[in-house]
Design a protein around this nucleic acid. Structure first.
Length: 227
DNA sequence: GCGACAG
DNA sequence: ATCTTGTCGC
């Protein structure tokens, strides 16, 4: 996939891009998509926000499942090294996410990431990337499509439509709230599409975003005021 | 050749 | 992601 950049941003170094692509090709072989082999009791949601141009703040919110009660909130902020390039988001955000993750007292059974899992040009969205690095089950919930085609799902909460890319169903377009734009749910690692979709829907209360990522998004903004 | 492109 | 006002609708 060709990358694009904002008209005023400096072009990414082709050599760096090539190296990152190669790294993704290697990670791709380690991806495991399977029915979850755990009982989901604790689920974490994570998200990052930016402070200015070169500082990133990542938050992890730990919730019980299926009650969805918050039991932990942690965050970490630091410098970012790379610019945002579609298809290479994980290299920009994962380092800081890992540091935030280490601050959790309890380990989640599953991590819900704000972004894509395998619904990515090389099946290595940030959710998958993070899952591989942590060797933890992950799934992605993205607000916009990155690759693939789909037909609009029905307008009622719970309606789903497959997102296909290169002949594979890589995500489900899921309506999490009546008459509201759907989200894109994909497995990250040690997870499967069916389970990820069910979990996303079970975590959808009265908002578009399922609670784990919605709260991570919310608190990332709140924590920003503390730095 | 012309679009499209997570956060 | 972020920069930003008012505004339409439940």
């Amino acid at each position: 996939m060709a990358y694009y950049r904002r008209f005023d941003a400096p072009p990414p170094d082709p050599k760096v891009l090539q190296a990152l692509t190669e790294q993704q090709r290697q990670m791709q072989e380690r991806i495991i998509l399977q029915k979850p082999d755990f009982e989901l009791k604790l689920i974490a949601g994570c998200d990052s926000s930016f402070i200015g141009e070169d500082t990133i703040l990542s938050a992890f919110i730990l919730l019980t499942y299926p009650e969805l009660e918050v039991v932990e909130k942690v965050w970490h902020h630091g410098p970012v090294e790379l610019p945002y390039i579609p298809g290479f988001l994980s290299f920009r955000e994962a380092p800081n996410l890992l540091k935030a993750y280490e601050k959790l007292q309890q380990q989640p059974d599953l991590i819900m990431v704000d972004g894509h899992g395998i619904s990515h040009p090389r099946r290595l969205g940030i959710a998958t990337h993070l899952g591989l690095q942590l060797n933890k089950p992950t799934m992605g919930v993205a607000k916009k499509v990155l690759v693939g085609k789909y037909k609009e799902p029905g307008t009622a909460k719970g309606a789903v439509a497959p997102l296909e890319h290169k002949g594979e169903v890589v995500a489900n377009v899921l309506r999490t709230k009546d008459n509201i734009k759907p989200v894109f749910v994909s497995p990250g690692h040690l997870m499967d599409l069916q389970s990820a979709t069910e979990i996303a829907l079970n975590c959808a209360t009265k908002y578009k975003l399922p609670e784990p990522t919605r709260l991570a998004d919310h608190y990332a903004a709140v924590f920003k005021k503390d730095v």
